[in-house]
Computed example of a mutant assay.
Amino acid sequence: MPDLIAPTARLHDAWLAAHAEWGPGLHEDGFGLAPTDDVDSQAGFAAWIARPAEESERAMCRWIVEDDQVLGGIALRHGFTDHVRWAGHLGFGIRPSARRRGLASWALGRMLDEARVLGMDRVLLVCATDNVGSAKTIERLGGAFEDVRDTGHGPVRRYWITIAEPTA
């Protein structure tokens, strides 16, 4: 059974294995990885995972973990900053070997609950126009397509999810 956990230095090797599976680059959305982050050294990794805790008023990052394997990450960004306008309130990524198991839908549903607790009534999600898996996941969870926009990093599909009150 998967779980959503706060980033932890205890899973450094497991995170590196997931990162290696994606290949080089910063494309694991949901982890908050920046080009300047040193994730290979223990000290750099510890500094990197401490950043989301320090920025908790702006974002909540969680790892999707099962049996001490990092399967993916998801981030809930608060407010409507320039970064949110570009990247969305929610970003997620599942490592290639863990895809097609429903993990993204499961994690997105849990983070929508967190957004509700924070008082958010709707959230923006974006995905690359060629990312069919993410588009289907967003649509499955109620994403209403808004449009396609060029972000300067390529065109993205934009969706809004209205956060409903929980049913009894």
Rank of each mutant, 00 (worst) to 15 (best):
R101Q: 14
A18Y: 01
R58L: 15
G73F: 12
E55C: 12
E28P: 06
A59M: 11
R101V: 06
A17K: 04
V84N: 01
T81P: 04
T36R: 07
G30F: 01
A59H: 05
R58N: 14
R58D: 15
L16S: 08
A34I: 01
E57K: 12
G30P: 00
R62A: 14
D82Q: 14
G23L: 00
L33S: 00
W48F: 14
A98I: 10
R51N: 08
G25E: 03
D40W: 13
S97F: 05
V65N: 05
R101C: 03
V39K: 06
G73W: 11
L26G: 00
A98M: 11
L33K: 05
W15M: 13
A59F: 06
L16Y: 08
E57N: 12
E54I: 00
G44L: 04
D38I: 05
T81G: 04
A46T: 05
R100M: 10
E57T: 14
H78N: 02
V65W: 01
G79F: 04
A75H: 01
G88V: 08
D29Y: 09
D29G: 03
V84A: 04
D29N: 08
F92I: 04
H83F: 14
G88E: 01
V65P: 01
L16D: 12
S41D: 11
P24D: 09
R100Y: 09
R99S: 04
A14P: 14
M60I: 15
E21F: 05
W48G: 01
S97A: 13
G72S: 10
V84W: 07
R95L: 10
D13G: 12
P24T: 08
L11Q: 10
D67G: 08
D38Q: 06
H78P: 02
D68G: 10
L33C: 04
W63I: 08
D68F: 01
H89L: 08
L26S: 00
I74M: 11
I64P: 02
A59W: 07
W63T: 05
R51L: 09
L26K: 06
A20Q: 08
E55Q: 15
E55W: 07
R101T: 01
P52Y: 13
G72T: 12
C61K: 07
D68L: 00
H27S: 04
D29S: 10
M60Q: 13
A98D: 08
G32N: 03
G32P: 00
D29L: 06
E66T: 11
R10V: 15
L11D: 05
L16F: 07
R10I: 14
G44P: 06
T8F: 10
I94H: 09
R100H: 13
R101F: 03
E55T: 14
